[in-house]
Amino acid sequence: MKSLLNPRNAVVALVIAGLLLLPVYSAVSGNLFILTMFTRIVILALAAASLNLIMGYGGMMSFGHAAYLGIGGYAVGILAFEGIGSGFIQWPVALIASALFALVIGSLSLRTRGVYFIMITLAFAQMAYYVASALSRYGADDGLTIYKRSSFGPLVDLSNRTQFYYVCLACLFGGIYLIRRIVNSRFGLVLQGVRSNEQRMQAIGFNANRYRLVCFVISGTICGLSGALLANNTDFVSPAVMYWTRSGDLMVMVILGGMGSLFGPVIGTIVFLVLEELLSQVTEYWALIMGPLLLLIVLFARGGIMGLLGRFSRG
């Protein structure tokens, strides 16, 4: 049995506590900006966690994950625009639309492997981007403003910053708990077996691609929820959320935090977005610092930040 008290668990516990208490700090210090920023971090951490399910546990390098951010967002935006403001309708539609999209592109992309898989998922996401850019009724290139956030009756008020933050946090923790259950379930073991040695898994009786596809759909669905949250957060959705650089950002967050570690994507997202924020305050050429920095971490810390922390817990 590994000890529960190691640097990795300590960091995770600290981050969880920090995320839970953040609105209190924001209220006491009067720092509203930090709440806004962390709402965004929590939402994108959910997207990164969903990507980690296929990348880290399923071994599928999807380069089109931002498509679901857009699909979830447009589901909310379009329904709101057409006068359907209830979150009980908007959010399920966001999830179902994302699941269907994942099902279609998954069944096509999963015929390929490696670089081809990366390219084809990228191509599908770019297709979604161009389709959204052509939706003239819904703002086309300029995007669609959402005048009223998803309404959940008297249950919660998403226009309240603190309540909205906690809704996002509940979605993140719920999503990570769900992924944790999946990873240790029958399905999850098969999935990781396929990542480890597909030939062996086929030989003992598993149809590898069926498990991959189901995983792809679950992951896309969770990311669709993240998209619905993101649209509510910005009160706006535009094709830009689906652009390929956004998919790349999500991949970097996952790799940075640690692929195949449950909490890694959360850490990766926090580090990525906080660094981006800090560096962009210092210089407008922040990307020139960020790029090499990330490269170093990826090169010298296999397993990302969580892997690095894991190394200390061995000793």
């Binding site: 379930s185 999850g188 498990y211």
Partner: peptide
């Protein structure tokens, strides 16, 4: 079948 997502397989 192995489309069971919740219970701990181990």
């Amino acid at each position: 079948h192995s489309f069971r997502f919740w219970a701990d397989a181990r």
